[in-house]
Design a protein around this nucleic acid. Structure first.
Lengths: 209, 209
DNA sequence: TATGTTTTGAGAATAATTTAACAAATCATC
DNA sequence: GATGATTTGTTAAATTATTCTCAAAACATA
């Protein structure tokens, strides 16, 4: 039964399904049951069926799921076949590492531009992505469509920079700064990579194992 | 009422409390009630009190919580005052970015060594951390205590490398590869930073806002 | 010291998530 | 085509997480 509002818990599991199905495809597996998929992923078959049923009926009784088809469906739900446009603010060590290594195109994103305050990098390009000065941000966004902004900047300027971008109509932020960003507009979405938070939970778990 | 087993949901909120309390300290705030803390963090006062009560009674009726004291308690729970030892496997763009930027010491970790397969980096040092050849891993771990290993290596060698380290007694992994790692030993803890998963959930949310 | 206010921690109630159960549909084989 | 084995999608039950409520404790002020 297709649901109207999908819970966050379900959404956060989708990418993992997508990865597993990509792997199954690569291994040449044609079909799979919720039971065996669950075994591979170490989750219950019930949860898998429940999760998928939020979006439609992708399986067939007595048969299971067609791997390639299911992968395409979930990829579509996640938007990997979209043409999302992304820019990066902050071309320091982390920003550069992402530009060089992260497979943006595989997730449906094209990286169109980067911005930085440092005159040392402005004018250069990293992995084919041109680096502009922060002053050019407004005029750039007026001319180009921007779906997501990657924030790889210092904490201290994170919220101000976000505000400036929200003002310009951006509503997707991939936030690598270790602060909580917010907007009064509920349509503005923040996705955080909080390195420190992550390491601290590990610290807790190894101490309390 | 102190709890025996703390749920993952609670643990994952602790670092955020810690951050907020650090900020309050810096702002010179001496005491705070669950209500106003909740307002600042956009969560309910109930949840805050419930969360804290898992670990003890840190507040005082009619007064609230002493900010500095509470910060210290949560820091202690998370282990920021521990002397955890950490090594990094894989000194590529991402590994280098972390070594240069991430404040390991603030989270109770000291980075003692890094390892890589590339002869181009072996023998060098990044931000004071010496880079050794992968062949030296076994002898290094025999001589030094290692609590956590940061995996910033290609997916393809992630599980094998983890296995090799688990064999050597390591039971904490900060995993930056986009694969799910596992061990039959439940005392081995994996904390994942799955960049692609994170961006995909954002992709979903901006498309379905 | 008495009085009204604030605020916690705990228990109860509610909400959300996960797991179990099962009818209905398909498959595989005789 | 009939029969038994699979496997789904859905509903129900169980579990987990969050929010509400309130007595008890401490504070603030007179």
């Amino acid at each position: 039964m297709k649901k109207e509002n999908i819970s966050d818990a379900v959404i956060r599991r989708l990418p993992r399904y997508y990865r597993q199905l990509t792997d199954l495809c690569a291994r040449g597996v044609v079909r799979i049951s919720s039971h065996s998929l669950g075994q591979e992923m170490n989750i219950t078959a019930s949860q898998i069926r429940q999760d998928f049923s939020c979006f439609g009926e992708f399986g067939q009784q007595g048969y299971g799921y067609n791997v390639e088809e299911l992968r395409a469906e979930i990829g579509h739900i996640l938007g990997v076949d979209n043409d999302h446009h992304l820019i990066m603010i902050g071309v320091g060590n982390l920003g550069r590492a992402l530009l060089r290594n992260f497979p943006f195109s595989q997730t449906g994103f094209s990286v169109d531009a980067a911005f930085d305050v440092s005159t040392a990098v402005v004018g250069s390009s990293v992995n084919g992505v041109p680096v502009y000065a922060m002053e050019e941000l407004e005029s750039y966004i007026e001319k180009h469509s921007v779906d997501v902004v990657v924030l790889t900047i210092p904490q201290s300027v994170a919220q101000d920079t976000a505000n400036r971008l929200i003002e310009l109509g951006v509503h997707g932020f991939w936030n690598f700064t270790n602060v909580e960003l917010s907007s009064s507009n509920p349509d503005v979405k923040f996705e955080n990579i909080h390195f420190a938070d992550s390491l601290l939970t590990l610290s807790y778990r190894i101490a309390n194992r």
